[in-house]
Amino acid sequence: MKIARDHKPRVGFFVTCIVDAMRPNIGFASLKLLADAGCDVEVPNTQTCCGQPAFNSGDDATSRQLAQQVITAFEGYDYVVVPSGSCASMIRSHYAELFAELPDWQERQHALSAKTWEILSFLTDVMDYTPKAEYHGTATYHDSCSGLRDLGVHDQPRALLSHVDGLSMVPLEGNNECCGFGGTFCVKYPELSTAIVGEKTAKIKKTQADTLLGGDMGCLMNMAGKLSREGSDMRVYHTIEVLAGMADGPGICAPALK
C-alpha cells in the first residue's frame, strides 16, 4: 500500500516500554528515520505501555485500561508507529478483543488499530523509504514472531538492509522459530526459556555472522543476554539502529566503548 501524499503525515511515535527503559537509542534512531522519510513525528507524553504484559497474563481489565490510554494519546495522528512487531501487533491485531462489549469504544479502537504500524514495514510499505547507511559486518536476521506472523513483516527489513553499504547478510537456520522470550514467559518459565534461547544462540553462532539483527527489543535482549552469558562477542542491534547509522555504540549487552 503506497499512499500519494500532498502533506507530511503526522506520526505519533510509540516508543514501547522496553525501548524506553532499556535502549533509548532505538527510539532516537526511529525518530531520525521517520523524519528522514518525510514524517512529522511527535512523541505523546501520556504513553507508557501497550498493555501486552497484562493481556498475555489474562488481565483483561488492566489491558483495556491501557488500551484506552493508548487510544486517547494517539488517535489524533495519521499513523502510530512502533519500533516493535510485538507491541504493534498488540495494538493492531489484539485490541479488538478487549472492546467486544464496549460499542462506544469499538470505533475509536478500530480506527487506531488500522493506522498502527511496525516501523520497518511502515518505512517500506507506507513511506516507500530507501535508507542511506553504512555498517561493516556480516549480519544474520531473526524474525520475531508477532511481527512475522501477525503483521507479515519479513521482506521489509531485508529490503531496507540491502541498501546498507558494507553489510552482508547470511541466512539464519530457524529464523522463523521463537527465541524463547515470550514476554512474561521468560521469567515465569526460566528453564524452558533458557532451553529455547540456547538452541537459538547455537544456530546464530553457526552462521559465522558477527552481528545479529532483529526488530523487537524483547527478543533481541533475550538473545543478546544469552550470547553475552555464553561469552560470545556477537554484536546485537535493532535493525533500525543500523538503518539510521546509529549502530556505532556498543551492541545490546556489550561493554561500553572505551
Binding site: C186, S193, G225
Partner: peptide
C-alpha cells in the same frame, strides 16, 4: 560493564542470561 549479571527478584532472567546496561536516562 554494559551488562548486568544478577538482578534481585529477577533470577529467572539473570540465571542464564545477562541483562543489558541501560543508557543514562530513559527515552522519555
Amino acid at each position: 560493564r554494559g551488562k548486568i549479571t544478577t538482578v534481585p527478584l529477577a533470577a529467572g532472567w539473570t540465571g542464564s542470561r545477562d541483562l543489558p546496561q541501560p543508557e543514562p536516562g530513559t527515552f522519555m
